[in-house]
Amino acid sequence: MRRITFMQAINEALAQEMERDPTVVVFGEDNAGGAGAPGEDDAWGGVMGVTKGLYHSFPGRVLDTPISESAFIGAAAGAACSGLRPVAELMFVDFMGVCFDQIFNQAAKFRYMFGGKARTPMVIRTMYGAGIRAAGQHSQSLYPIFTHIPGLKVAIPSSPYDAKGLMIQAIRDDDPVIFFENKVLYAVEGEVPEESYTVPFGEANFVREGDDVTIVAIGRMVSFAEQAAEELAGDGIECEILDPRTTSPLDEESIYESVENTGRLVVVDESNPRCSLASDIAALVAQNCFEDLKAAPKMVTAPHTPPPFSPTLEDAYVPDPERIAAAAREVVEGAGARA
């Protein structure tokens, strides 16, 4: 099958949905780029180039914005209630700080507060994650905060295939969706069908099957879990890797099903550990699979610190395959395991 990058997969999803549905609009800072400037139009296509080319293909439907996230993220919510399907870009998720009200008090609440009368079909595309030495205000993995809010859906693709399918699903979905793009994954290539398709929300992907330990991993952590599993297989430990793909809705059933079989759980989450996806999934499993557990669930996360700048420190901050393998080993054969 054709191979394209994670970035191209998102771009293609946007283009195909814009082609299919004239109510889909795309906006954000420098999403075209060069607005009002003497040089080239569509000069950037977004700070990383994800929206490049859409400006010329869809005249009037790709808009640059001033640096006013409260206004344009809120405008996405308003536009969604009044006939459009906006895809707004919050360049780095860290910038949620300047516009969160429009997301969690406005967009997220309409449906429930208005007694089921509202539909808010908006997507917020946003970058997350450490790894590019961008320090404390450009490297956080803040998806647990959004997952916490009823009314928001949260998608976190780990591969080009999922990126395209989840994006198309997100655009067609009638609820506000926060779409998390790990900036380190943009250049990753994978097989992606040319035709349009969706990946349903709330359906975990069984990335690898195994009987000894369940590893639930999210976003960039999925490939790290695969590397760990490969290493452990050499020692006869078979890992089952689940990628939830969306954290809200969360495919709890698949997780429980896997843990019932393996009796052991490791959750890998790039965010900080307290009130994280890792702590959430570990708690759900402890509550729902207690009888099946042969060891206490383990979490592999970033530490409880902001992301550091120095490459040495940042490399130690992000969970890596070695830490995942060590955690898996411990639940299988270490002190954490019950006899």
């Binding site: 800072e29 420098d30 780029g33 060069g34 607005a35 009002g36 400037a37 003497p38 000069a43 950037w44 700070v47 640059d64 001033p66 640096i67």
Partner: peptide, 12 residues
């Protein structure tokens, strides 16, 4: 005159 690639003429 610019915010990233966006001109001040556009944004203000």
């Amino acid at each position: 005159g610019y915010a990233e690639s966006t001109s001040t003429n556009f944004s203000t």
